[in-house]
Structure formats: structure tokens, C-alpha cells
Write a protein that binds this DNA or RNA. Structure first.
Length: 225
DNA sequence: CAATGATCATAC
DNA sequence: GTATGATCATTG
């Protein structure tokens, strides 16, 4: 606990810090950092992620880069039940809807963000007050070749539909492990995209999300070792 | 009751 | 509006 908030200088140090947090309630961490604990997350959906960023010394702000650029690590909290099963999908990044011709998987935001992720399971069902939820064992993850193959396959299929002007027909049912869903302040938010005839249209901003079966499997592999 | 579509707070 | 952090709430 004495290292709370310090910037990690290596992946090893970062993981060590995360391991020190394992078993603590969010209320305990919040108190140490002098952060107020909300009664629920309805108006504080990003509270847990921001608390862990602060606790582990991640760079704050809204910069479009990894949480630990010098370490090449992305930090993600993931709500799970007491058996380690994810309770929600995991947001990865906003999907580019224009200027995407020639964009390859290798250069995509999704691939870059998921190349190395420090997963922090947060144990507690939706009805459990945030402060009572418990930090689980961290996992520094790199996608296996099979996992990356699945991600690339879904990404390429979805991006092709977008580039062909079919974004209006894409639902969250597309993709095995990665899905495209709205990512906006509300249904009135609009952004430019490609229409069916190649013309510019306005549509809801979308984001890529990891489906729970995918994150559930990757966490399970870790916990079974 | 899980999954999809919609939404909340904040910084710039 | 975009990008950060995600979960809510309605639907099937």
C-alpha cells in the first residue's frame, strides 16, 4: 500500500503494485487516496477505472494513448462475479468511420491497445455497492496467436462493412469475440460515416467491445494455472 | 437473465 | 464532437 500512486518504472513493478492491491476493497483504496466513494455507479460509470489508474500511477487525462506508454501497457478493470466470470463487455476503443481505406489490423487502435493489457478483476455483482467490491488477482496479458487471429478476423469483417457503407446494418451480433456498439453521450450524438452509396452520412459514434465469453475465457486460463 | 443498444461524467 | 473511464436499462 505504501507505493500507491507512484509511477511504475517497469512492468514487473507495475504487476507487483497490482498484486499488493489484491484482496482490498475499493473503499479501502479510496480512503488511502482520499477519494469519495459513490453509493452506486449510475452517474459514475468510470469511477472504478479511474480509482485504479490513480492507485497504480497511470497517466491521467484524456490522451489517446496507453495508460503506461513507457511500459507499453493498457490498464483495464473488469467487473466479475465471485467465480471470476465477467459481468460486462469491455470497451476497447472508438471505431474509425471515415478515412479508413487501406487501414490494416496491424496498425489498428484495437490491436495496439490489446497487445498488452493489465487486467484488474473487480469482484462484485451489480447490486454490491462500489466501496464493498473487492480487487482480484491481476493478469498481465498478451493475446495468444489464436486469440489474436479471432480478434483480427472480427475486426477485418467489421471494418470492411464500415468501408463498404454498411455501418447501419452492423449490430452487436457481428463478430465472435469483438463487437461494434454505440459509444456516445446519447442517441442524439452524431458523427460522419460512409453511406450505402459512398456518400457521407451522419450516424451514432461506435466503439469496439470485447464480448464477455472472450474475456471470461482469458481470465479463466489464468485462474486455472 | 444475458445481451444489445443507450447512456453518464469529465477534459479539451 | 472526440477521447478518457465504463455501466445502465431495456429487450428478447
Amino acid at each position: 500500500m505504501h507505493t500507491l500512486g507512484l509511477r511504475p518504472t517497469s512492468q514487473q513493478y507495475l504487476v507487483h503494485s497490482a498484486e499488493q492491491l489484491c484482496g482490498l476493497t475499493l473503499a479501502e483504496v479510496a480512503q488511502t487516496l482520499q477519494v469519495n466513494v459513490p453509493k452506486n455507479l449510475r452517474r459514475n460509470k468510470g469511477w472504478i477505472g479511474q480509482l485504479l489508474e490513480l492507485a497504480l500511477g497511470a497517466s491521467a487525462g484524456s490522451k489517446p494513448e496507453q495508460d503506461f506508454p513507457e511500459l507499453g501497457v493498457e490498464l483495464k478493470t473488469i467487473p466479475v462475479n465471485d467465480q471470476g466470470k465477467p459481468l460486462e463487455t469491455t470497451f476497447v476503443s472508438v471505431a474509425p468511420l471515415t478515412g479508413i481505406s487501406g487501414l490494416r489490423w496491424q496498425d489498428s487502435n484495437v490491436r495496439n491497445k490489446l497487445s498488452c493489457v493489465l487486467w484488474i478483476p473487480i469482484i462484485g455483482e451489480r447490486h454490491v455497492p462500489p466501496g464493498e467490491r473487492v480487487i482480484g488477482p491481476p493478469l498481465l496479458w498478451h493475446p495468444s496467436s489464436e486469440e489474436e487471429r479471432l480478434l483480427q478476423q472480427d475486426w477485418e469483417e467489421i471494418m470492411e462493412l464500415i468501408s463498404l457503407g454498411h455501418i447501419q446494418s452492423i449490430t452487436a451480433r457481428h463478430g465472435q469475440v469483438l463487437q461494434l456498439r454505440p459509444k456516445a453521450a446519447n442517441s442524439k450524438a452524431l458523427t460522419e460515416a460512409i453511406g450505402a452509396k459512398g456518400q457521407p452520412i451522419l450516424t451514432l459514434p461506435r466503439g469496439f467491445y470485447l464480448k464477455t465469453n472472450f474475456t471470461g475465457t482469458l481470465l479463466a486460463k489464468h485462474f486455472m494455472l
